[in-house]
């Protein structure tokens, strides 16, 4: 662990959605601010900055994490995936993203990035969840637009399709 000085900027290097990137951050800079305003990846959103709403959830080294409760310097050396990394290519959506679109599982889209990141990891680890499982898991996210009904439907639909993909592979 390098020694950091409070008033100085330090170089933070991460692998972001498969690409090596770096930027400067004071030790107190939040990872959300670093991603959004230093690296320019604005897909990760900030909803509460105290870890409750879940909008800023990203994948750090394979596990979901609240970027708003993480300092940028803590992420030095980490492999990070954000919502920008979910689609297989520009103009195409992932199975989960496509399920969200078909089920109208988003309205304003502000909480969506965090929910997609959480579900992407969850469905990888839990391929056959029940509706209650999905609801319990989604309890870590706040959505004010949808009432959650279409999000749950999209998650279950995506799980089924992903199981099909896994079988066919």
């Amino acid at each position: 662990m390098p020694r950091l000085s409070a008033g100085r900027r330090h170089t933070v290097r991460v692998t972001l959605n498969g690409r090596a990137v770096e930027g400067e951050a004071e030790p107190r800079m939040l990872l959300t601010d670093f991603l959004r305003h230093v690296l320019g990846s604005t897909g990760t959103h900030v909803g509460c900055e105290h870890g409750v709403c879940g909008a800023c959830t990203i994948d750090i080294d394979g596990a979901p994490a609240r970027a708003c409760l993480t300092l940028a310097v803590q992420a030095d050396g980490a492999t990070i995936r954000t919502v920008e990394g979910l689609a297989p290519e520009p103009g195409r959506l992932s199975v989960l993203q496509d399920a969200f679109r078909r089920h109208h599982a988003l309205q304003c889209g502000f909480c969506t990035a965090g929910i997609l990141m959480s579900l992407d990891i969850y469905l990888r680890d839990t391929p056959s969840p029940t509706e209650q499982d999905v609801r319990e898991f989604l309890g870590g996210h706040l959505c004010r637009c949808t009432g959650y009904v279409p999000i749950v439907a999209a998650a279950l639909d995506a799980a089924q399709k992903l199981r099909g993909v896994a079988r066919d592979a």
């Binding site: 897909g43 919502v83 969200f100 988003l106 969506t112």
Partner: peptide, 14 residues
């Protein structure tokens, strides 16, 4: 939706 689902939304802070 395509933009919002891929992190390409254009909210004020973006």
């Amino acid at each position: 939706d395509a933009a919002l689902l891929t992190g390409r939304g254009r909210y004020i802070d973006d």
